[in-house]
Design a protein around this nucleic acid. Structure first.
Lengths: 210, 210
DNA sequence: TCTAAGTCTGACCATACGGTCAGGAAGCGA
DNA sequence: TCGCTTCCTGACCGTATGGTCAGACTTAGA
């Protein structure tokens, strides 16, 4: 790379190793769950000795926490589309597109998130009660505005959001089931496009904005 | 009970203990995942010594397998509503009702199922490839018939099914998140009714059958 | 009542796991 | 070059876990 990286070798190593460990951890936590994941497995996948993991992350819980927090931030970022949209067709359409892309390209994160919530959100309960609650309130306000402006039917915004989350994340969390029902093959580009269109079509028509 | 139970004491004990262990196991597997669950915890919850579990179930895997198979059967049974319905309003309406009731009253089963599929379906892959595939093909045929009869819009039946599964199961699998966003309280009877109506309303309108 | 089969369980075992640590290697400012 | 800090890791440790087993206890048919 021509760009002269302005980092001391130390911090460069630090960043690279932490990133490598976090990536490996996300995969292993997604595949085996927190309890089924082992530090040894993560170490092997990251290509580092186990003791090195404990140099960067004091405990398995610490490592897991950082993985989950990283995922949560991606999750929130996907929602920017929602904000500056003139109406539900653009806003919800873009949101579905964004979340389906995440489900396709980063299914591991979605699985770790699902697992965390299913087990009672032991490490991110505070985020649910603050950041997520605020975020949700904001989007509900947007949806209610759209309803008031006659841009969509008066549906319950909460359950609409749940439906959006559920449907889009299903393609990541239950990807294995979908793949099996697809003859054991991953969905093709065309099938992903059809999935997006189906989801958007049913929901937008369902809220009277199609 | 007045009904004279026609069982030897032995088989009665056997049934009762197996059932008690399976119930405890479902709860523990749901709360902690396969890897996080311990035989000791299941034993404590069932009120039996750990060695007794191994008398009825040779290994943790065996116990887990029976739990998952039991859940899978409940899952399939919920779909009877689909079959003898004259059209999507009745069929899908009843299916959503049935699955929402399961999500409300047996969330643990749903979570174990979700966890199993998320981790690549290690123990029920064969069921996915046979029973579930056949079941899905049957419902797709029903939906296609409804479309041909003009009872609903021509949506992709596969993605419609995924949306039904995702949305209804979300209320079990992500129940903790929903509860947190509901001020830390479980949904009330009224809220569950609203949830059902929201889901049915959006989907049925979305497929042009509202 | 006797005996064979079924039920039960405390004590035990091997292993795998998360985590520690001493000490060596490498980077870096002076 | 020197000395300090950071980085690295093989070897090790305590514990918890899944699983075993010998033998006690209970049931049920003859």
């Amino acid at each position: 790379m021509s760009e002269p990286v302005r980092l001391s070798k130390r911090t460069a190593i630090r960043q690279e190793n932490k990133a490598r460990i976090l990536a490996a951890a996300e995969k292993v936590f997604a595949e085996a769950g927190f309890g089924g994941a082992t530090m040894q497995l993560i170490a092997d996948m990251a290509g580092l000795p186990k003791a090195n993991l404990h140099y960067y992350f004091a405990t398995k819980e610490d490592l897991y926490r950082e993985v989950v927090e990283k995922i949560f931030n991606d999750w929130l970022r996907a929602a920017d589309s929602f904000d500056h949209a003139p109406g539900p067709v653009e806003g919800i359409g873009a949101y579905v597109d964004a979340k389906m892309d995440i489900s396709r390209h980063h299914p591991d994160g979605s699985k770790v998130w699902a697992s965390e919530v299913m087990h009672g959100a032991p490490v991110i309960q505070d985020y649910l009660e603050t950041t997520l609650r605020d975020w949700t309130a904001g989007r509900i306000a947007v949806i209610e505005r759209w309803i008031a402006e006659g841009k969509m039917a008066p549906v319950d915004p909460r359950h609409l959001l749940y439906m959006l989350w559920a449907t889009t994340q299903h393609y990541a969390d239950f990807g294995h089931q979908i793949e099996t029902l697809n003859g054991g093959k991953a969905l093709s580009d065309k099938q992903w496009r059809e999935a997006k269109e189906s989801v958007k079509g049913i929901i937008l028509r369902g809220i009277g904005a199609g």
